[in-house]
Design a protein around this nucleic acid. Sequence first.
RNA 1: GCCCCCAUCGUCUAGCGGUCAGGACACCACUCUUUCAAGGUGGGGACAGGGGUUCGACUCCCCUUGGGGGCACCA
Length: 459
Amino acid sequence: MYAARASRTPMTTPTVRVRFAPSPTGYLHVGGARTALFNWLYARKLGGAFLLRIEDTDRARSSEENVQVILDGLAWLGLDVDEEIVFQGAGIARHQALADRLLAEGKAYEEDGAIRFRMPEGEIAWNDAVYQRISFQGGDIKDWVILRSDRTPTYNFTVVADDIEMRITHVMRGDDHISNTPKQIAVYRALGHEPPVFAHVPMIHGPDGKKLSKRHGATAVGDYRVKGILPGAMRNFLALLGWNPGDEQELFVDARDLVEAFSLERVQKKSAIFDLTKLEWLNGQYISRTPPEELYALVKTDLDDRGLTAAAVGRDRLRRAVAVQSERARTTLELAERVAIRFDASLIRRDAKADKLMAKDPEGFRTALRAVAERLSTIAEPDWTPEGLETELRGLAEARSLSLGAVFQPIRVALTGQTVSEPANVLLELVGKDESLRRIRSALVWEPDVSGIRGEPTE
RNA sequence: GCCCCCAUCGUCUAGCGGUCAGGACACCACUCUUUCAAGGUGGGGACAGGGGUUCGACUCCCCUUGGGGGCACCA
């Protein structure tokens, strides 16, 4: 199965060497990231090496910054690379020499100044680690250029040359490369090398079933980072796209558990559709499992940008606000927004559910808020605590024979513009007495916007 | 057009000849609760179609249909 190599001690299993080989296009596509993840998981599982090769033969697109984007993306996901990064462009002289050798051996021929590879007749098949046996007829594939007339090598040729050079044992890549594989196998043979194990992993598609691309919206790993997705959640989600552990475990907070569970045998053949909703659910799971201290660190920059520094708001208050949102936010961005609203009334935007609640009974809404304002204004600052507030508000509800919801829900809406929040008494305490009363009074004159909530549910 | 691959709830998937076709997300109820969220319980929801093989097919084979990918002096 494997090429025998002089440097290796006979009779031992060769060390697994895999690689991720992106071209530096300026962003790391989630499909690429998933391929990288599978390679990494496989290498870690087998104690092999995970290598990175930058396919930078397209000079125009290759810049230092573009390479950096890939490195940042991999690092963010926690995929550490084992050896020096290989730049494909550095091997051109070697690629040329190899092409010349095939030319001299009659395995390739010159045409219009380019060197064209002579495809052998007959079946070219391999045992794919994911798809099992795949077979092509060499005769169906036309001879193809390996060295252009300007003597630059082409993709299918350099891949083979470099994978040989890097002693890659397993080539794991998107299944869009399946039809390149017979060409590459033919080159391995022409060069006198045994092909590696191929493992083609299914692609990731957009909601319309087509290859995930920019018109689907966010396709770069960096986009999700900006959206407030945690790297662990992203890694977890990507792992589950086209692979499953065989049992019902879905949450792999510790990457080591993922490594442990991973196997090529359980990689799917069918392409998977990227489901943002599930990613966000997973992310919410990760957020609610993240200690408040870490969470605060994650949203600190965002809060600072809004002027909500520890100095301005109070370190303790800020942290409590973060902690209390952790189980209600699905992204760190959403979490930061929720926190910010509590300290900056100008950020309040009534959502559809809030309008719906108001529209259902506008008078009841106002009456409740008036009563709440009246009652709360009598509370002395020292009693403005979650416990004190709860007692007062329960008392109020009882005195007015209102349900607790009829009292607490309007408070949520008045203070945040939303129907979802921490317990209302905790919210009041966090926002503070003066500010809470101010927000309640301005909510008294709100007119519900019913334009969007006619008939069927909105959203 | 030619070549290759794929096909279970809306989505991610389990299933590897005999299952009430299981789980997760989403959705809907109910429950818990300060009519939030989270949690808990329950519900609706799938084997693309047709032929075979077999005592018996989601599972194996063939065809059809549908979907995807590839056919460059791009990568």
